[in-house]
Design a protein around this nucleic acid. Structure first.
Lengths: 234, 234
DNA sequence: GACTGTCTGGTACTTTTGTTGGATTTGAAA
DNA sequence: TTTCAAATCCAACAAAAGTACCAGACAGTC
């Protein structure tokens, strides 16, 4: 698969010749569905870019529960932190589907940065963005209830269609649970709650947004809209 | 108060002349105890360094509960993210005690970075470190129980003395609660639990670590050491 | 069409966390 | 010392989340 590195924020504003040099420094890897890309605490795997397929990054706690930090689609980057400081990888990464991933080792990345000012500049900006996202996630985990996090997930995943848009892209309740940092049953309950309250509707196997405003209210305030209070399942 | 900027990781490896230039670009501010340094969502306040006193950075949820992201002592930096991308401040900052704070505006920081390669390099590394910390905090919030987080806080705050070391630096239960992202009463309970289990001891107004190994076990596994299981207060 | 594994729906129960309110302790100020 | 506000202790209760378990639904395969 042929891609244009310039589409990736880290490499924007870099001219063709130099981009070519960067591509030379990178390695491409194919992973079978389920294959491990790298593991938390393992030797620095360098800077990574998803070219094709889906990659899950996650952490595991001592009891074996998963927390999926993100599900990465093509052109998403990951492991930016270890790539730049050379330390151990901060999380696990596995291919969910068959996937192609581009990798630039820590030393090569550092080398490229010293000669390519734009790369360094882009990197600072991108790290800052990632940082903001983590602050946001942190607050979600400390302040938001599960139904509220679920509402936020639906809003985030859905396109901005009219009344009714599509469900989190084929995610199972198990997947959702690991994204929200909880268990399958709890997600099931929360889902039922939102359905009963009329914020979501179910058509066959899929769930759609029925009341965007209501979901937004729930996502922001952590409480059900007044008018629906009574309907919630306990 | 006179300080040596070179002691701050962001400014390490920069020679005297250039450090002087940086100091010229900075402004110093004095804050009374309780004064607001900047607010979440407000216009970018730039790069900040605590020179003297204690600064709290925190976020507030819709119900008014606080989450203290950190309590910063002299030579800690904050707002690195907004400083570099020029966006709104990601959290609130207030002076806990009278404090002196050094600030470099976003445009000036960017300007310094373009001329001073080391500063840019340091910045990338520092952002990466901050990033790792946030990932860690995120996992603490998703996976760890309150007693476990409390144990971790004690271990973190305490010096590595022999048997018994000092308590979180004069923090009230209210303070601890806002650091752990919970309420005062819950902290009180957890504290009582650790005291009853013999992991902590109380001498007068202060609480000391009595059983470092036990605390570490609790902090890591999220469960009380077997031998102490029965003693926990419900 | 039967079998299998995955996913979902739902119930009942436990544990943890959050909430409320009142009784005590404490340290600093008057 | 007295007084006051802040900090703490404690118990009882409410709500949320986690756990266990099992019955169906469904898709794919043999």
């Amino acid at each position: 698969m042929d891609i244009d590195l310039a589409l990736i924020p880290y490499f924007s504003g870099i001219d063709r010749n130099r981009l070519y040099r960067i591509e030379q420094a990178a390695h491409r890897h194919m992973y079978q569905a389920g294959a491990v890309v790298f593991t938390e605490g393992g030797d620095c795997a360098g800077f990574q870019v998803v070219l094709e397929g889906l990659v899950r990054i996650y952490r595991v706690n001592t009891e074996g529960r998963l927390h999926t930090l993100s599900l990465l689609r093509p052109f998403s980057t990951f492991n930016e932190v270890a790539a730049v400081d050379g330390g151990p990888n901060p999380y696990n990464a596995v291919a969910v589907t068959n996937a192609e991933v581009l990798a630039i080792s820590h030393p090569r990345l550092i080398n490229l940065m010293t000669t390519e000012q734009s790369l360094l500049n882009n990197y600072v900006q991108s790290l800052a963005r990632v940082n903001r996202e983590y602050i946001e996630r942190l607050e979600d985990m400390t302040f938001r209830s599960i139904p509220s996090r679920l509402a936020k997930l639906f809003l985030h995943e859905s396109t901005y269609a009219d009344q009714i848009s599509e469900t989190p892209t084929g995610l199972t309740q198990e997947d959702i649970a690991s994204i929200l940092g909880t268990t399958r049953e709890v997600v099931g309950r929360a889902l039922r709650g939102l359905l009963n309250a009329g914020l979501l509707v179910k058509k066959g196997r899929h769930v759609y947004i029925a009341d965007r405003t209501g979901l937004e209210y729930l996502a922001e305030t952590n409480t059900m809209p007044e008018r629906l209070r009574k309907i919630i399942t306990p």
